[in-house]
């Protein structure tokens, strides 16, 4: 099975986390490095074999004790979770694909660490001046 990113998404890596912005559902999600690696393989489209192949290429450069392992089932479960969330779509198979992105140094199961709805802004006085005590102070005298 191949997958591609949904169009209404944006992402950035900030610190240790990769943050996805789901523009359709107006929510943000934080990915761990393994999940971020899989997400980054979606530049065009990807499949489980391509992800596992990328890991194999990395392992060829590592000592035996440092080799990374991620089962195809773990990859597929994560991809299906993204499908459920509407962040990726199943796609028709095409030509085999090479992935040029290095996996993270430490490989843990791919996880969505958190997700939250994007609010316009919480509890600002900007649109509600003088409607509660916090918004009724007179700071400039």
């Amino acid at each position: 099975m191949k997958y591609r990113r949904a169009k209404q998404t944006a992402w950035r890596t900030i610190g240790e986390e990769t943050i996805l912005l789901d523009l359709a559902e107006k929510r943000m999600l934080g990915l761990n490095p393994t999940a971020a690696f899989i997400w980054q393989t979606f530049e065009t489209m990807t499949d489980v074999d391509a992800v596992v192949h990328a890991l194999g290429a990395k392992n060829q450069r590592l000592d035996a004790e440092d080799q990374l392992s991620l089962t195809p089932a773990e990859v597929e479960t994560f991809l299906e979770e993204l499908v459920e969330l509407g962040l990726v779509q199943r796609a028709e198979p095409t030509e085999p694909q090479r992935i040029a992105i290095d996996p993270p140094a430490e490989l843990k199961p791919p996880r969505i660490l958190w997700q939250e709805t994007v609010e316009q802004v919480a509890a600002t006085c900007a649109f509600f001046p003088a409607q509660n005590p916090l918004c009724s102070q007179v700071p400039f005298s």
């Binding site: 943000m28 994007v118 609010e119 316009q120 802004v121």
Partner: peptide, 8 residues
């Protein structure tokens, strides 16, 4: 991010 005025 919680303090940004998001143009939702």
């Amino acid at each position: 991010r919680k303090e940004v005025l998001w143009p939702t």
